[in-house]
Design a binder for these strands. Sequence first.
DNA 1: ACTGAATAACAATTCAAA
DNA 2: TTTGAATTGTTATTCAGT
Lengths: 149, 149
Amino acid sequence: MKGLRQRKIREIISERDIGTQKALVEALRNEGLPVTQATISRDIKEMQLVKVPLEDGTYKYALPQDQRFNPSQKLRRALLDHFVSAEAAENLVVVKCLPGTANAVASLIDGMNWPEVVGTVSGDDTLLIVCRARDKAEEMARRIRGIVS
Amino acid sequence: MKGLRQRKIREIISERDIGTQKALVEALRNEGLPVTQATISRDIKEMQLVKVPLEDGTYKYALPQDQRFNPSQKLRRALLDHFVSAEAAENLVVVKCLPGTANAVASLIDGMNWPEVVGTVSGDDTLLIVCRARDKAEEMARRIRGIVS
DNA sequence: ACTGAATAACAATTCAAA
DNA sequence: TTTGAATTGTTATTCAGT
């Protein structure tokens, strides 16, 4: 339950402004995740969310900002959310993701500027990582799987 | 009182880990700034400080992270803390700062990569901004003064 | 406008349970 | 190990005073 809930929390606080844990409890209830404030408080601690005072005098919960700027953290989070599988085929890695998420993952991989990666191509739920050489593809597939495990 | 107190707050939370407003109240008391939690709460809101959950299970107050990474915000903060005066002289701007702070300010100005600036030289409480042309120096002095006003 | 005292609102933790 | 209920601790705001 916890993993799903925490992902949902990230989703909710990214989409709209949530100012209190009570508001977050209600938002989660509406998403079919009944939970109490005590649990949310623990989640916030674990996820290292912060309550940010806004210009307009209100507050909102937000993701820790260094994670927002750190490309490999972003990729890790994206993979944790969307990754299904990764397999090497010749000089390619075929990465399966949840429907509609392959593009997001691909652009994060692009953003890593890994030297062994020539580029990526993505569809709806699958993306290809084009590597410089066959042996690099195997290594890359392992790296991707390693990130989520 | 407020300006000084808020600067002191920034100083304190940068130096050591402060986990609650009560702890901050005490720290300020020790610095000769008697104040109550209510006021701290308002300062935190105004300064947009956040309470960050740390890896070790504790919490600490911290500066908003985008300010930490934003060079012009950093310069602005440094100037608010340390700036005394800025005057153009030929193609130079002579910037006076509080004792011992000129170096810090100079390196932040270097970091701005302003095209009209050739470089900076700094002593203990004075720094020179070397501009490409005389008319640029006047403009630069105005810009510096503008930042703090 | 700024502040403190009191209070309300909110968040973290304890304790017990599954 | 995870959770909720109750509790305690902490923080935001109200209200009054300067």
